[in-house]
Nucleic acid binder design. Structure first.
Length: 430
RNA sequence: GCCCAGGUAGUGUAGUGGCCCAUCAUGUCGGCCUGUCACGCCGACGACUCGGAUUCGAAUUCCGACCUGGGCGCCA
């Protein structure tokens, strides 16, 4: 019976494992194999004079990264990694690996990210990469657990759509029979429509597509968005939910991912303090001006340099609130007493934006006016506007970038490290 | 979209006009080695993105193409 490598302990008597040949050290009369599966690495020691001829014959055939099944007795040996080693009675080659390898799994020689992504299946055999995706999986699971526990309904909305959500961002056009269609940039309109349906609390974790030709370490053309929408809530409510969720994710990863964190040389995650600072937009641009010496006009976006300067000063997660209505989407709710300011917010990590959200406009006529004010045509949004005429509750929500969350949590240098098969300006395969 | 940088063995690199039929490491192959843990030692194999130009001579300079990385704008 095959067991995971991490279950082979110094106390184990007999074991059978299946894994990839991580490394071979042939000392002549004695050969050491390191066999790796997703749970760890086991040393297999072959004293050539003491093992059978069949074992020796197979050992000669084996190349690095071949898949092997090894069965034998386990010995507690202090010198061996993990304090134990396996001496094989049988050693089978299940699938031979070609050589040379497209990249060095053991990482004696580093590989460029581009080379690694070309051979992602091999790259992902590296314990570091495996660890990142184990943690990413834990993050996503935590989000599901957290939201289900709070009565959220999971929904799935179309990724093939007829019209842009917000104007602004470029969309990928696709051929949809005789019609023009696009890949969705956000589930925004659909999750709002489900507020009209009375679902009250919905969430979706799914792909979003942006056709922007950016070429940076924090942008993807296909990303994963964690999106929620809540009825009878305002921006303050969903900001609290967001910071609590972030905190909960950090704690859960810290508790449940000790192994992967150790592989990544992260002993302790730096768990952010809550509540996060709420920094109104006017204060944010003032801070940025003070730090960079470059004034930002009210109504201008906060650029990357300003964003980094503020991030350095605050040093932790923070919200930027009370944005000018002019630079936020039409669905962000303006304040009653000053409609030039809206109830939108961005959640920032010192390195980059993680999330943006808002209390939404739920009044049909106001929404139409705001769509027009952005230079868009309400006629193109009729499917979206109709629900606002039939009892739309007040609501609020946000979208959180899953890759950016993982990236900032683990201190990854490039967002592509947080996706198995990234889609960027130049990469469409694998 | 704008700007900058770069393409040298399977992988990562050195090399800024002749010292380069190209450095080092890793890898692969062969040999030696019974406690390695980046095992060690000996030997071999393997590369200048493509096209054009300048020059006595180009990996090196220039032009074009293709590919890549990064910054910015914008955004999650």
């Amino acid at each position: 019976m095959r067991i995971p490598i991490k279950e082979v302990t110094p106390e184990t008597a007999q074991a059978e494992v299946i894994g990839w040949v991580h490394e071979v050290r042939d000392l002549g009369g004695l050969t050491f194999f390191l066999i790796r599966d997703r749970t760890g690495i086991l040393q297999v020691t072959i004293p050539k004079k003491k093992v059978g001829e069949e074992v020796l014959a197979t050992v000669r055939e084996v190349s690095k990264e071949s898949l092997v099944r090894v069965r034998g007795s386990v010995k507690a040996i202090e010198k061996a990694p993990g304090g134990r080693e396996l001496v094989p009675e049988s050693f089978e080659l299940l699938a031979r690996s070609e050589s040379p390898l497209p990249l060095d799994v053991v990482e004696k020689v580093p590989a460029d990210l581009d080379t690694r992504l070309d051979a992602r299946f091999l790259d992902a055999r590296r314990p570091r990469v495996t660890a990142i995706f184990q943690i990413r999986s834990a993050v996503i699971r935590t989000v599901y657990d957290y939201l289900f526990a709070r009565d959220f309904v999971n929904i799935t909305t179309p990724k093939v759509v007829a019209a842009a959500t917000e104007g602004g961002t470029e969309l990928f056009p696709i051929a949809y029979f005789e019609k023009e269609a696009f890949l969705n940039q956000s589930p925004q309109l659909y999750k709002q429509m489900m507020m009209a349906a009375g679902f009250e609390r919905v969430f979706e974790i799914g792909p979003i597509f942006r056709a922007e030709e950016h070429n940076t370490t924090k942008h993807l053309n296909e990303a994963t968005s964690i999106d929620i929408e809540v009825s009878f809530a305002d921006h303050r409510d969903v900001m609290e939910l967001l910071e609590d969720l972030i905190l909960h994710i950090y704690h859960t990863v810290q508790d449940r991912c000790a192994g992967p964190l150790e592989v990544l040389d992260i002993g302790e995650l730096t768990i952010p303090d809550t509540p996060f600072d709420r920094l109104p937009y006017p204060d944010a641009i003032e801070m940025a001006a003070g730090a960079t010496g470059e004034a930002i006009a009210y109504g201008d976006d906060i650029g990357t340099i300003a964003e980094k300067a503020i991030g350095e000063m605050i040093g932790s997660h923070y919200f930027i609130t009370d944005w000018p209505t002019s630079i936020k989407p039409y669905y962000a709710m303006p304040y009653d007493d000053d409609p030039t300011v809206c109830k939108a917010f961005d959640l920032m990590h010192p390195r980059m934006e993680l999330s943006s959200g808002a209390a939404r406009v739920h009044q049909h006529d106001l929404l139409v006016r705001q769509i027009r004010a952005k230079g868009l045509s309400p006629e193109n949004f009729e499917f979206y506007l109709a629900p606002f005429r039939y009892g739309m509750p007040p609501h609020a929500g946000w979208g959180l970038g899953a890759e950016r969350l993982v990236m900032t949590m683990l201190g990854l240098g490039n967002i592509r490290e947080a996706v198995l098969f990234p889609r960027d300006r130049h990469r469409l395969t694998p």
